[in-house]
Protein backbone atom coordinates (compact mmCIF):
# COMPACT_ATOMS: atom_id res chain seq x y z
CA UNK A 1 0.00 0.00 0.00
CA UNK A 2 2.78 2.34 0.94
CA UNK A 3 4.63 1.53 -2.25
CA UNK A 4 1.51 2.36 -4.22
CA UNK A 5 1.13 5.70 -2.49
CA UNK A 6 4.73 6.59 -3.17
CA UNK A 7 4.27 5.58 -6.79
CA UNK A 8 1.21 7.79 -7.06
CA UNK A 9 2.93 10.72 -5.41
CA UNK A 10 5.87 10.41 -7.76
CA UNK A 11 3.66 10.09 -10.78
CA UNK A 12 1.78 13.21 -9.81
CA UNK A 13 4.86 14.96 -8.61
CA UNK A 14 4.78 17.60 -11.30
CA UNK A 15 1.19 18.48 -10.57
CA UNK A 16 0.19 20.77 -7.76
CA UNK A 17 -3.55 20.09 -7.85
CA UNK A 18 -4.16 16.45 -8.64
CA UNK A 19 -2.21 14.99 -5.76
CA UNK A 20 -3.00 11.61 -4.24
CA UNK A 21 -4.83 13.55 -1.56
CA UNK A 22 -7.26 15.35 -3.91
CA UNK A 23 -7.72 12.23 -6.01
CA UNK A 24 -8.83 10.48 -2.86
CA UNK A 25 -11.37 13.25 -2.39
CA UNK A 26 -12.74 12.62 -5.86
CA UNK A 27 -12.75 8.89 -5.26
CA UNK A 28 -14.73 9.23 -2.02
CA UNK A 29 -17.03 11.65 -3.80
CA UNK A 30 -17.58 9.11 -6.54
CA UNK A 31 -18.53 6.37 -4.09
CA UNK A 32 -20.86 8.73 -2.23
CA UNK A 33 -22.57 9.81 -5.46
CA UNK A 34 -22.97 6.23 -6.62
CA UNK A 35 -24.34 5.12 -3.26
CA UNK A 36 -26.81 7.99 -3.10
CA UNK A 37 -28.03 7.53 -6.66
CA UNK A 38 -28.14 3.75 -6.58
CA UNK A 39 -29.99 3.53 -3.26
CA UNK A 40 -32.51 6.24 -4.13
CA UNK A 41 -33.22 4.63 -7.51
CA UNK A 42 -33.62 1.22 -5.93
CA UNK A 43 -36.00 2.33 -3.18
CA UNK A 44 -37.70 4.68 -5.64
CA UNK A 45 -38.52 1.91 -8.08
CA UNK A 46 -39.86 -0.30 -5.28
CA UNK A 47 -42.20 2.53 -4.26
CA UNK A 48 -43.10 3.41 -7.82
CA UNK A 49 -44.51 0.03 -8.83
CA UNK A 50 -47.40 -0.06 -6.34
CA UNK A 51 -47.90 3.70 -6.75
CA UNK A 52 -48.16 3.36 -10.53
CA UNK A 53 -50.75 0.62 -10.12
CA UNK A 54 -52.67 2.68 -7.57
CA UNK A 55 -52.45 5.72 -9.83
CA UNK A 56 -54.74 3.91 -12.27
CA UNK A 57 -57.20 2.77 -9.62
CA UNK A 58 -60.85 3.49 -10.20
CA UNK A 59 -61.18 4.65 -6.59
CA UNK A 60 -60.49 8.38 -6.46
CA UNK A 61 -59.28 8.22 -2.87
CA UNK A 62 -56.43 5.95 -3.99
CA UNK A 63 -55.79 7.63 -7.34
CA UNK A 64 -55.95 11.29 -6.32
CA UNK A 65 -53.43 11.35 -3.44
CA UNK A 66 -50.88 9.56 -5.65
CA UNK A 67 -51.53 12.04 -8.44
CA UNK A 68 -51.10 14.95 -6.00
CA UNK A 69 -47.83 13.45 -4.77
CA UNK A 70 -46.36 13.03 -8.27
CA UNK A 71 -47.63 16.46 -9.34
CA UNK A 72 -45.97 18.23 -6.43
CA UNK A 73 -42.69 16.33 -6.57
CA UNK A 74 -42.38 16.63 -10.34
CA UNK A 75 -43.44 20.27 -10.34
CA UNK A 76 -40.94 21.63 -7.82
CA UNK A 77 -37.12 21.70 -7.84
CA UNK A 78 -35.30 18.85 -6.17
CA UNK A 79 -33.22 21.44 -4.33
CA UNK A 80 -36.30 22.65 -2.46
CA UNK A 81 -37.32 19.10 -1.63
CA UNK A 82 -33.81 18.53 -0.31
CA UNK A 83 -33.93 21.68 1.85
CA UNK A 84 -37.35 20.72 3.17
CA UNK A 85 -36.26 17.26 4.25
CA UNK A 86 -32.84 18.35 5.46
CA UNK A 87 -34.07 21.27 7.56
CA UNK A 88 -37.52 19.90 8.22
CA UNK A 89 -36.65 16.49 9.56
CA UNK A 90 -36.07 17.81 13.10
CA UNK A 91 -39.68 18.92 13.21
CA UNK A 92 -40.97 15.37 13.23
CA UNK A 93 -42.21 14.85 16.72
CA UNK A 94 -39.78 12.83 18.78
CA UNK A 95 -37.34 12.02 16.01
CA UNK A 96 -34.46 13.42 18.01
CA UNK A 97 -35.18 10.96 20.82
CA UNK A 98 -35.85 8.02 18.52
CA UNK A 99 -33.46 5.34 17.37
CA UNK A 100 -33.48 6.89 13.89
CA UNK A 101 -31.89 10.14 14.99
CA UNK A 102 -28.26 9.04 14.53
CA UNK A 103 -29.26 8.20 10.96
CA UNK A 104 -31.11 11.40 10.18
CA UNK A 105 -28.60 13.63 11.87
CA UNK A 106 -26.21 12.91 9.05
CA UNK A 107 -26.87 14.74 5.82
CA UNK A 108 -26.66 11.55 3.77
CA UNK A 109 -30.00 10.15 4.88
CA UNK A 110 -32.16 13.23 4.50
CA UNK A 111 -30.63 13.59 1.04
CA UNK A 112 -31.35 9.94 0.29
CA UNK A 113 -34.93 10.45 1.42
CA UNK A 114 -35.43 13.55 -0.72
CA UNK A 115 -33.89 11.89 -3.78
CA UNK A 116 -35.96 8.76 -3.25
CA UNK A 117 -39.22 10.69 -3.00
CA UNK A 118 -38.27 12.65 -6.13
CA UNK A 119 -37.32 9.70 -8.33
CA UNK A 120 -40.27 7.66 -7.07
CA UNK A 121 -42.60 10.41 -8.32
CA UNK A 122 -41.05 10.51 -11.79
CA UNK A 123 -40.81 6.72 -12.01
CA UNK A 124 -44.45 6.36 -10.96
CA UNK A 125 -45.53 8.48 -13.91
CA UNK A 126 -43.19 6.63 -16.30
CA UNK A 127 -44.65 3.27 -15.24
CA UNK A 128 -48.16 4.68 -15.23
CA UNK A 129 -47.78 5.73 -18.86
CA UNK A 130 -46.36 2.35 -19.83
CA UNK A 131 -49.14 0.47 -18.03
CA UNK A 132 -51.78 2.63 -19.68
CA UNK A 133 -50.33 1.84 -23.09
CA UNK A 134 -50.71 -1.90 -22.72
CA UNK A 135 -52.44 -3.20 -25.84
CA UNK A 136 -56.14 -3.63 -25.11
CA UNK A 137 -56.26 -6.87 -27.05
CA UNK A 138 -53.56 -8.44 -24.90
CA UNK A 139 -55.50 -7.62 -21.74
CA UNK A 140 -58.64 -9.00 -23.31
CA UNK A 141 -56.84 -12.23 -24.22
CA UNK A 142 -55.63 -12.54 -20.62
CA UNK A 143 -59.18 -12.09 -19.35
CA UNK A 144 -60.54 -14.53 -21.91
CA UNK A 145 -58.10 -17.19 -20.70
CA UNK A 146 -59.34 -16.96 -17.14
CA UNK A 147 -56.61 -14.86 -15.60
CA UNK A 148 -57.45 -13.08 -12.35
CA UNK A 149 -56.56 -9.40 -12.08
CA UNK A 150 -53.43 -9.94 -9.95
CA UNK A 151 -52.20 -12.72 -12.24
CA UNK A 152 -52.83 -10.59 -15.30
CA UNK A 153 -50.91 -7.70 -13.73
CA UNK A 154 -48.01 -9.94 -12.77
CA UNK A 155 -47.71 -11.94 -15.97
CA UNK A 156 -48.97 -9.69 -18.76
CA UNK A 157 -49.33 -6.01 -17.88
CA UNK A 158 -46.23 -5.36 -15.76
CA UNK A 159 -43.70 -7.38 -17.77
CA UNK A 160 -44.66 -5.67 -20.99
CA UNK A 161 -44.98 -2.24 -19.33
CA UNK A 162 -41.52 -2.49 -17.73
CA UNK A 163 -40.03 -3.26 -21.11
CA UNK A 164 -41.73 -0.31 -22.72
CA UNK A 165 -40.70 1.95 -19.83
CA UNK A 166 -37.05 1.05 -20.20
CA UNK A 167 -35.90 3.93 -22.47
CA UNK A 168 -37.70 6.54 -20.35
CA UNK A 169 -36.39 4.96 -17.17
CA UNK A 170 -32.86 5.10 -18.54
CA UNK A 171 -33.31 8.84 -18.94
CA UNK A 172 -34.55 9.04 -15.36
CA UNK A 173 -31.42 7.26 -14.11
CA UNK A 174 -29.21 9.78 -15.92
CA UNK A 175 -31.40 12.60 -14.66
CA UNK A 176 -30.95 11.38 -11.06
CA UNK A 177 -27.21 10.99 -11.51
CA UNK A 178 -26.99 14.62 -12.62
CA UNK A 179 -29.54 15.92 -10.12
CA UNK A 180 -27.64 14.28 -7.25
CA UNK A 181 -25.04 17.04 -7.62
CA UNK A 182 -27.22 19.23 -5.38
CA UNK A 183 -26.34 16.95 -2.47
CA UNK A 184 -23.17 19.01 -2.15
CA UNK A 185 -25.17 21.99 -0.85
CA UNK A 186 -26.14 20.16 2.34
CA UNK A 187 -22.49 19.40 3.23
CA UNK A 188 -22.36 16.02 1.51
CA UNK A 189 -18.97 15.31 -0.08
CA UNK A 190 -20.27 13.81 -3.29
CA UNK A 191 -18.46 14.20 -6.61
CA UNK A 192 -19.56 17.81 -7.02
CA UNK A 193 -18.76 18.50 -3.38
CA UNK A 194 -15.25 17.15 -3.93
CA UNK A 195 -14.84 19.29 -7.03
CA UNK A 196 -15.98 22.38 -5.14
CA UNK A 197 -13.55 21.60 -2.35
CA UNK A 198 -10.65 21.29 -4.80
CA UNK A 199 -11.73 24.51 -6.52
CA UNK A 200 -11.91 26.41 -3.25
CA UNK A 201 -8.63 25.08 -1.97
CA UNK A 202 -6.53 25.68 -5.08
CA UNK A 203 -8.66 28.37 -6.72
CA UNK A 204 -8.50 26.25 -9.88
CA UNK A 205 -12.02 26.14 -11.30
CA UNK A 206 -11.11 24.76 -14.71
CA UNK A 207 -9.13 21.78 -13.43
CA UNK A 208 -11.52 21.05 -10.58
CA UNK A 209 -14.74 21.19 -12.56
CA UNK A 210 -13.58 19.87 -15.91
CA UNK A 211 -12.12 16.83 -14.19
CA UNK A 212 -15.38 16.13 -12.39
CA UNK A 213 -17.33 16.81 -15.58
CA UNK A 214 -15.31 14.08 -17.28
CA UNK A 215 -16.12 11.65 -14.48
CA UNK A 216 -19.83 12.45 -14.80
CA UNK A 217 -19.55 12.04 -18.55
CA UNK A 218 -18.04 8.57 -18.11
CA UNK A 219 -20.78 7.63 -15.65
CA UNK A 220 -23.45 8.91 -18.03
CA UNK A 221 -22.05 6.92 -20.92
CA UNK A 222 -21.83 3.80 -18.76
CA UNK A 223 -25.49 4.13 -17.80
CA UNK A 224 -26.43 4.68 -21.44
CA UNK A 225 -24.41 1.65 -22.46
CA UNK A 226 -26.04 -0.59 -19.86
CA UNK A 227 -29.53 0.56 -20.83
CA UNK A 228 -28.84 0.09 -24.51
CA UNK A 229 -27.78 -3.49 -23.79
CA UNK A 230 -30.86 -4.05 -21.65
CA UNK A 231 -33.12 -2.62 -24.33
CA UNK A 232 -31.57 -4.84 -26.94
CA UNK A 233 -32.28 -7.87 -24.80
CA UNK A 234 -35.67 -6.99 -23.38
CA UNK A 235 -37.14 -5.22 -26.38
CA UNK A 236 -36.18 -8.02 -28.78
CA UNK A 237 -39.88 -8.66 -29.31
CA UNK A 238 -40.35 -5.29 -31.00
CA UNK A 239 -37.65 -5.81 -33.59
CA UNK A 240 -37.73 -7.87 -36.75
CA UNK A 241 -35.86 -11.13 -36.40
CA UNK A 242 -32.25 -11.12 -37.48
CA UNK A 243 -31.03 -13.53 -40.12
Amino acid sequence: MEALTTWWTELLGGNAIFTANTLEFYWNGLTTTIQLVFLSLLIGILLAVPLAIGRGSKHPWIRMPIYAYTYVFRGTPLLIQLYLVYYGVVFFEGIQESMFWPIFREAFYPALMAFTLNTAAYTTEIFRGAIKNTAKGEIEAARAYGMSKPLMLRRIVLPSAFRRALPAYGNEVIFMLHASAVASVVTIMDLTGAAYYVYARFYAPFQAFIFVALIYLCLTFSVMFVFRRLERRLLAHLRPREG
Binding site: E138, Y145, S148, R163, L238
Partner: peptide, 22 residues
Protein backbone atom coordinates in the same frame (compact mmCIF):
# COMPACT_ATOMS: atom_id res chain seq x y z
CA UNK B 1 -66.11 -16.43 -14.25
CA UNK B 2 -62.35 -16.98 -14.42
CA UNK B 3 -62.85 -20.72 -13.98
CA UNK B 4 -65.41 -20.76 -16.76
CA UNK B 5 -63.39 -18.59 -19.12
CA UNK B 6 -60.53 -21.07 -18.81
CA UNK B 7 -62.92 -23.64 -20.33
CA UNK B 8 -64.02 -21.43 -23.22
CA UNK B 9 -60.94 -20.48 -25.21
CA UNK B 10 -61.34 -17.49 -27.45
CA UNK B 11 -59.54 -16.76 -30.71
CA UNK B 12 -59.57 -13.07 -31.59
CA UNK B 13 -59.81 -11.16 -34.83
CA UNK B 14 -56.50 -9.39 -34.09
CA UNK B 15 -54.87 -12.51 -32.59
CA UNK B 16 -53.96 -10.66 -29.37
CA UNK B 17 -50.88 -12.73 -28.77
CA UNK B 18 -48.89 -11.32 -25.85
CA UNK B 19 -46.20 -9.27 -27.53
CA UNK B 20 -43.47 -9.66 -24.92
CA UNK B 21 -43.56 -13.45 -25.01
CA UNK B 22 -42.34 -15.86 -27.65
Amino acid sequence: VERIRAKLSMVFQNFNLWAHMT
